[in-house]
Computed example of a mutant assay.
Amino acid sequence: MADRLTGGDSSLLRRINAAVTLRALRAGHSVTLTQLVGETGLSRPTVEGVIEGLVESGLVAEVDQPRDDGHPGNGRRGRPARWFRFRAEAGHILGIEIGVHDVRVILADLTGQVVGSHVRPVDEALAAEGRLAAARTAVAEALRRTGVPRDSLWAVGVGTPGIVDRAGTVRLGTAMPGWTGLDLGARLRRSFRCPVLIENDANLAAIAEHWQGAAIGADDVVFVMAGLSPGAGSLINGKLHRGYGGAAGEIGALHLLGREVTPERLLSTTGKPLNPLDEAAVARVLRLAREGDEVAQVAMDRFLTRLVQGVAALVLAIDPQLVVIGGWAAGLDGVLEPLRERLARFTLRAPEVAPAALGSEVVAMGALRVALDHVEDQLFAVDPPARG
C-alpha cells in the first residue's frame, strides 16, 4: 500500500508530503487545492503534484462542487476551484469474530464506515475445521450482499477466545473444540490476499469500546468479558497491553489457585459441581436468582465475588480510569452497583464502572479497528517500503 501513496516514488520527502496531504483529505469532506495548501502548509505546486499521484493511485478523486443554489460552479468569475475527496471506497476492511455460538463479520470502507455485516450461527460443539468453514462462508456472504470484491480487501482483523500469540497461533483455547494449538493466522491467510491479524476477543472488545463505545476518551481501561471463564483486555495510555505471550488479563485462570472457586462449584445450587457446565445451565441459575430463589442467589453472589476478585487484581495492578463490563454480566440486573461497591472496598482507588455499549458486535468491531489501524499505518507511513 505504500506504493499507492507515492506512485512508486521512494523519495522520503515525497512520501511525507503524500502522507500529510492524505491525512488532510481523509479528515473531512471535499476540499479545494487552496484549502489543502492552507491545511498542510505545503506549497501549491507540491500539493498539486501529490494530488496528481493520489488520483492516479485511486485513493483520491476530483469532484464537482455545487454552488449554494445547487447548480454546478462556484459562483465566482475566473478560474474555478478544483475540489478533491478521499475515495473511502477504494478499499475495504473486515472484522471477524469466531465465537462459541456464532461467526460475525463486519465490512467497512477505508474510513471505518460500516457497509455491511453478516452473522452465522454455529454449534458450540463444532470442530475446528467446521468452524473455519463457517467463517469463510460468513465472509463470502457478507461480500456477496454488499457487492464488494474480495480483492478490494486491504486488511482483515479476527477475534477469538483464548491466548493468542503475535503470529496468530492459539496457544490455549478451551472454549471451542480443537482450538488449542491451532495456527489460526496461517489457516485464514490462505483465504485472503491481504494481511490477516489475529487477536484475543477480550482485547478486541477493549479496543472497540475505546473507539466507539463506553470507553471513548478514557485511555486507561479494563474491559471484562464476564462469562464461564472471565477474561479481560486492558488499555494503558490508549495502547493494548497484551503481555509477553498474549496472556495478559486471563483472570479466568484464577480458579487454578484453588479448586473451591471453579465455575462448576461457584454456580452450583445442589452442592455438587454444575454438570453440564454450559450457558443454558448458568442462565437458569441466574434467572432463579433474579426470581428470588435463595440458593441461586447465594450461587450468584459467589459468581460475583469471584468476578470482583479477578477485576480487583487488574485494578490494583493497572489503576485504570474505567472498568467496562461486557459478556453476560452486562445484561445482569443489579450487577453494576455491587461491583462498584466491592471494588471500592477491595482496591486502593475505585475506578468508574460502566456497562459495555456495543453489545454483541463488540469483538467484531474491535477486529475491524485493528484492521483499520493496520491500513492507516500503511497509508500514512513515511518509511521506505521494505525490500524483499
Rank of each mutant, 00 (worst) to 15 (best):
I251K: 12
I236H: 12
E250F: 05
A232L: 02
V224I: 12
G246I: 03
S229I: 11
P230D: 13
S234T: 11
V222M: 11
A232F: 00
V221W: 01
S234D: 00
N237Y: 11
G231P: 08
A232K: 00
D220E: 10
I236T: 13
G243S: 04
G233A: 10
V221Q: 05
S234G: 00
G233R: 03
K239V: 14
G246P: 09
G249L: 04
G233D: 04
A232D: 00
N237H: 15
L235S: 11
G233T: 05
A248V: 09
Y244W: 14
G231T: 10
L228I: 15
G249R: 05
K239A: 15
H241M: 15
G227A: 00
G238K: 04
G243F: 10
R242H: 13
L228A: 13
G245A: 13
L235P: 12
P230H: 12
K239D: 15
G243K: 07
F223W: 09
G249C: 07
Y244C: 04
F223S: 07
L240P: 01
R242V: 05
G246R: 05
G233H: 04
V221C: 08
L235G: 12
F223M: 14
L228H: 13
A226R: 07
G231V: 07
A248W: 07
S229E: 08
F223P: 08
H241S: 14
A232R: 00
R242P: 02
R242E: 05
S234R: 02
H241F: 15
L235E: 11
V221H: 02
G243L: 06
G231D: 06
V221E: 03
K239F: 10
V221N: 04
G238P: 01
M225P: 00
H241R: 15
L235F: 10
G231A: 10
G238D: 01
S234Q: 04
G231M: 08
A247V: 02
V224A: 14
P230E: 13
E250R: 07
A247H: 05
D220P: 05
G243M: 06
K239P: 00
S234L: 09
L235N: 10
P230M: 14
L228F: 11
S234H: 00
N237K: 14
N237R: 15
G238H: 03
D220I: 04
V222Y: 09
G231Y: 08
